[in-house]
């Protein structure tokens, strides 16, 4: 504790009254937030699919999994991807339902083809997805597989970082990650390359869910 006290003593010596600042409020209003969100995520090399309904959205997921010949999928237990009868829906695929399935989660995530999750929020301004840790939610599921499919209900959209922090409740999950596009690097000769250590493909299936969420 010697260092702590010595440092704090110096800091206290320099302490002085400071201006009290009010929070920065968003300067943004978007006429068509869904379009803006989709456009931004597309600009970030995200793969955006839009659907009119939940049913149509799930058909898109079915087709995507078929197209990429996904054998194994890790699924976070969160709305709207929770409570699925995965065996009935995808009998030919191995699914790991986080919080439910037995076996080594990390090892499954490291080897599987796809991570399928919901989002806790999505930022219109930047086309970002926000995922949180907690019961049934693996943070590795959105990181280790080469493909991350996120189900984005438009009711989850919020304008930007400022509206998101302002609307944030008291509960602080151990981990919150704002995802803005697929994993990428430009460390070699400044050439943009996707899929450095996280997913090479980030697919957002965006759909109306009839819920209103201010």
């Amino acid at each position: 504790m010697g260092d702590r006290e010595a440092i704090l003593e110096r800091l206290r010596g320099a302490s002085r009254p400071a201006e009290r600042l009010s929070p920065w409020l968003t300067r943004r209003t978007f006429e068509n937030p869904v379009d803006r969100f989709c456009e931004c995520l597309t600009n970030l090399k995200g793969d955006v699919r839009r659907a009119e309904s939940a049913e149509a959205a799930w058909t898109i997921v079915d087709n995507l999994l078929d197209e990429m010949d996904a054998h194994s999928v890790v699924i976070n237990q969160e709305p709207p991807v929770d409570g699925m009868d995965t065996v009935a829906r995808w009998p030919e695929r191995t699914c790991y339902v986080v919080g439910e399935s037995e076996g080594d989660l990390k090892a499954f995530c490291a080897d599987c083809d796809v991570g399928l999750t919901g989002v806790s929020a999505a930022l219109v301004e930047t086309g970002s997805l926000i995922v949180e840790s907690g019961e049934g939610r693996s943070r590795l599921a959105t990181l280790l597989p080469p493909v991350h499919i996120a189900m984005v209900r438009v009711s989850r959209l919020t304008t930007d970082l400022f509206t998101w922090t302002a609307g944030r409740g008291d509960h602080i999950p151990t981990n919150v990650t704002v995802i803005s596009g697929p994993s990428k690097t430009a460390d070699i000769e400044f050439t943009l390359t996707l899929g450095a250590h996280g997913p090479k493909r980030l697919i957002a299936v965006v759909y109306e869910d009839g819920e209103m969420d201010s």
Binding site: C40, L44, E125, G127, I172, N175, V178, I179, S180, G198
Partner: peptide
Amino acid sequence: PLSVYTNVVT
């Protein structure tokens, strides 16, 4: 606009 991952650890 934002880096790909903004990771908040608590």
